[in-house]
Simulated assay, not measured.
Amino acid sequence: MDKKNVYLDNNATTPMDDRVIEVMTKVMRESYGNPSSVYQVGQKGKKIIEESREMISGLLGLKSREIVFTSGGTESNNMAIRGVARCLKKKGMHLITSAIEHSSVLNTFKDMESLGWEVTYLGVDEKGKVNTEELRRSIKDETVLISIMHSNNEIGTFQPITEIGKIAKEKNIIFHVDGVQSVGKIKIDFENIDLFSFAAHKFYGPKGIGALYVKSGVKIEKLITGGHQERNRRAGTENVPGVCGMAKALEITLENLYVEMEKEKKLRDYMEKKILENIGKVTINGDLSNRLSNTSSISFEKVEAESLLFALDMKGIAVSAGSACASSTLSPSHVLEAIGFSISKAKSTLRISLGRFTQKEEIDYFVEILEMAVGNERNLNII
């Protein structure tokens, strides 16, 4: 093990699998033509795109025409939310989401508010779970969209997606699910889901490529105008290497899904047990019986997470203090605030997310360095 490179931030992004890189490299060398071109080298790329679409839809149990390729999770979320809201504007302008969504969802809804839409932000309990009865009470005649994440990127808690989907169907409301953190980590049930976002770089594929599942019959307005790519739903020259890399990454991941889930859960539980025993005055956050198998959110009493991040990084260990999309800010996590944390507790919390390549020896090294770092910080903070 290289003790100078222990990567424990797989919810931010995952390293690409060598098998994915190999497939993409071949495509980049041999299929460089524009897929919209009629000549052979262009049509070769078009064929790869459609074969990849078939593979992805087949692996997820969907229809190929229901998959729209995007640049990633952020674009997929924007396409779903803005696309539905614009399309159904005459029917109603009320939207529902939760207070712990990813920034690409929350900031999109905030923008929709500035444009005249009404948004209800559902609270969550101390485990980060939406109350479905509160959801029911929030629905109005003008409600056209409910958008709730499948699992939280910071604390790992799963939302009651099945129940929410049934409520949405009963009320004839479009239901969007941000599944970026869940695809490749747990089997997805798409029943009663109308729109579903996911991104390749969360399951060992390339960055810059994602997809939006659009259930047959669901209409959305396109965000990007130009050509007629993606069945006239998303203009722009297709990312052929990215698409085929995404398909290969998903194939590899789902082939070994349950094995990887069990391995990560075992390592995570081992890590949490060692931290509780060796460090003390810590709290493990979220729904401990209903969360992603690779994710651990831990608060350390009388310690600033920012100080721990620097201390760990100096020893070659990468973890985070929350979502990667918000980690450059000094503000406390909106997720931790939503589950009732004080500002000081929110700022004392680390997110550790394991992955396919995480080894037990790396966990041992991490806990050893973490124990020293926490001890040093607590000694400095003694008044």
Rank of each mutant, 00 (worst) to 15 (best):
V68Q: 07
A211G: 15
T132G: 06
M79E: 13
R29D: 15
S289C: 10
D2V: 03
Q359M: 09
S37C: 10
T157M: 07
K46M: 11
S31Y: 10
C87G: 03
E163C: 03
A247I: 07
V335Q: 00
A247T: 09
T14Q: 12
D141M: 15
A200Y: 07
S103L: 09
N381R: 07
K266E: 10
R268V: 10
K171Q: 12
L309Q: 04
I224A: 06
V6M: 05
S57E: 10
M28K: 05
F366N: 06
S52I: 01
K265V: 01
I174P: 02
S71Y: 15
L330V: 08
L370R: 14
M79H: 10
G208D: 06
I164D: 00
S333N: 14
S293A: 12
M261L: 13
S342L: 07
L308T: 01
K360F: 02
T70L: 04
K44L: 15
V84T: 11
L330P: 05
K110P: 08
T132K: 05
L8W: 05
K127A: 02
P35R: 03
S37R: 12
I224C: 06
R356V: 03
V177M: 00
I339F: 08
G217C: 07
Q159Y: 06
E221T: 06
N294W: 02
S289R: 05
N5M: 00
F109T: 01
E377A: 10
K302L: 10
F198L: 14
S293F: 02
V282M: 06
W117E: 12
M314D: 13
N376Y: 13
E304H: 14
G45A: 11
V177D: 07
P332F: 07
D178H: 06
I317G: 06
E272G: 02
R351M: 12
E66Q: 11
G156N: 03
S327V: 12
T14W: 04
S52T: 09
H150Q: 09
D287H: 09
M112N: 05
N381C: 04
I21S: 10
T13Q: 08
L212Y: 02
N131P: 13
R231N: 11
E118T: 06
K89P: 05
G33N: 14
